[in-house]
Amino acid sequence: MRRDDQASNRNTLGLFIEKAALLLAMTGAAVAAWILRDVVLILFGALVLAIGMSAVARLLGNRMRIGYAAGFSVVVLTGLILIGAIGWFFGAAIGEQLDEVARKIPTGLQWLTDQIEARPYARDLLAKLQTADLSGPTGWIASALAASVRTSVAAAGSLVVMAIIAVYLAAQPQRYKIGILRLLSPAMRARVSRLFDAEANILGRWFAGQLAVMATVGILSGLGLWALGIRAALVLGLVGGLLSFVPYVGAVIAAVPATLFALAQGPYYAAAVIAMYVAVHFIEGNFITPIIQSEATALPPVVSLLSVISCGLLLGPQAVFLAAPLALFFITAIEVLYVEPVITPEKKVEL
């Protein structure tokens, strides 16, 4: 009996040490991920891009019967040709309109300042703002715009790095998947492989749908600005399409520079621009997105909005661009790793 007790104690101690080591490893991984969160975000963005590229390459390979490698080469070459064509045909126009936007936004800010200072109740508010050391009556607006520009530049640099990493990941996706699975125990490989497949499916479908939404919003915004007589319609429509990648918040951010630019042409232009953006995003939110994004990938509005706010507060403004796919990633991981194992096949229900 004493030997059996000693063996049981050793097994218990070994199990405790194993769980403690696992807990320490998970804690260390979480701390390292937090310290290197910028790198983790770039890797996650590259993963989303790679999943989208891989899905298109697989589709082309199957449809054209040319294989995955040839399909992937077509995807990369097509992307490079499109980028070069946009730069060749629209580069000069975009550059001119960017210069015009840079000149007109301060004019719009000055008009807004004059209108505020012309009203007594607003002057009292300005005095309080100035005592708060906000660098002038509209300094907070200018500071917000400057921060947005810095964030956009940083996001553009990160996007280049993401694209380079995504090309390497999408070129040999199975190589990296098998390499990760080999690090796991045989008992965990099947479930983690199922997780990889589920994540690739959900993120690939979301990415394709989001690209379609961005293109639609960009085209509608550009056409609306052009119809209203806003001279920088191409650039502002492009910005609106890109920022629609961020749920809810992106629509508001995109409307700010367009409205300030329109103020330089007159207050009625600014009011018309605001009305146009409201109409475009009403159409996008109620018709375009529900049609393009299927129920399998559509996030509930509350979850989507909370993910944007949480990523912005915890990880910085650049992280809001990846808020939606991050939420989908964690929801899918919870379902595959936790929900599915505790639901027996007989009791499995649609969630």
Rank of each mutant, 00 (worst) to 15 (best):
A264Y: 02
I230P: 05
A55F: 03
L80I: 10
W206A: 03
D133I: 02
T289N: 05
D197C: 03
A122Q: 03
L337K: 08
R103T: 10
S73V: 14
P173F: 06
L13V: 13
W206C: 07
V249Y: 06
G139D: 00
S152K: 04
G139Y: 01
G229V: 00
A55W: 12
I116A: 12
L228M: 07
I288A: 02
A155N: 09
T78F: 15
V75N: 07
A212Y: 02
T113F: 03
A170C: 01
V39Q: 13
I253V: 15
T78P: 06
A298R: 14
S221L: 14
W226T: 06
L314H: 10
E346S: 13
A171T: 04
M1Q: 11
A324K: 02
A50Q: 07
I230C: 00
L24F: 12
S148C: 05
R231E: 07
R194Q: 15
A93F: 10
A323F: 00
V336T: 15
A155T: 13
Q172S: 12
M162T: 01
M26W: 10
G222M: 10
L22F: 08
A132D: 09
F44P: 00
S304W: 05
Y121V: 09
L23Q: 09
L49H: 04
Y168P: 04
A69G: 11
Y268H: 12
A163Q: 03
V213Q: 02
E96K: 09
E350W: 09
L112A: 10
S185V: 03
I141L: 11
Q110K: 06
N62V: 07
E350R: 11
R3Y: 11
Q110S: 14
R123I: 12
A155F: 13
L242F: 15
G87A: 05
V161C: 04
L129Q: 13
W34E: 15
F196L: 09
A142G: 05
S307F: 02
I343M: 14
V336G: 09
F245E: 12
I291Q: 13
F330D: 07
S304A: 15
T259E: 07
L242S: 07
Y176C: 01
G67T: 08
V249G: 04
I165H: 05
G266F: 06
L225N: 06
L328D: 05
L184C: 05
N286H: 13
S193E: 13
M53E: 09
